[in-house]
């Protein structure tokens, strides 16, 4: 079947999609957007976090067909200018929150979502908001640092 959807601001039509394919599979295997990751494919790890019509979802739990006519934003679409990093991406780099990096895209999208609705979250709120994103490398300390750094920068710069 054919799926029409808008991904990272661009309208696309994807052909030959099997009915059982997830949005994650279509993004990764048919649209050359492998940034959304496939660590568990059952909604436990958050590595495939994307925006679907502005709401944070696990792309592995969304059928591709459910995305028909809708708007998807992935980690590849967060930076406004392709050459620049979004402040959340920059903060993850500087804080040392990236090791193997497999959880990173999902955590960046989830952090982006948190800071867009709650610009100055408490540490408890950050932990609560990111509890659905598993990381096996960092022990989360540097991720907390990154979220705090991104929050400060975005508040100062008005970016988002």
């Amino acid at each position: 079947m054919r799926i029409n959807l808008r991904v990272n601001g661009e309208q696309s039509a994807v052909d030959d999609v099997w009915e059982g394919e997830s949005l994650l599979h279509v993004l990764r295997e048919r649209m050359a957007l492998p940034g959304s990751k496939n660590a568990c494919e059952q909604g436990e790890c958050g590595s495939c976090s994307v925006y679907l019509d502005g709401a944070l979802v696990c792309a592995c739990l969304v059928l591709a067909a459910q995305a028909e006519g809708r708007e998807v934003v992935t980690v590849e679409g967060l930076a406004t200018d392709h050459d620049d990093l979004h402040p959340v991406q920059q903060a993850f780099l500087e804080a040392g929150a990236v090791q193997c990096g497999f959880c990173t895209p999902g955590l960046i999208v989830a952090t982006h979502e948190l800071l867009s609705r709650r610009p100055d979250p408490s540490e408890s709120e950050v932990r609560e908001a990111l509890a659905g994103n598993l990381c096996r490398c960092t022990g989360y300390e540097k991720i907390l640092d990154a979220v705090a750094l991104a929050g400060r920068r975005m508040a100062a710069g008005g970016a988002g």
Binding site: L33, P34, G35, V75, E76, L85, Q89, L93, V98, G101
Partner: peptide, 18 residues
């Protein structure tokens, strides 16, 4: 800075499953 850092935060880093 780690050389694989930017591709990892932008989603462009090619893991074995990508």
């Amino acid at each position: 800075a780690r050389p694989d850092g930017i591709p990892k935060v932008t989603g462009e880093f090619a893991y074995s499953s990508d």
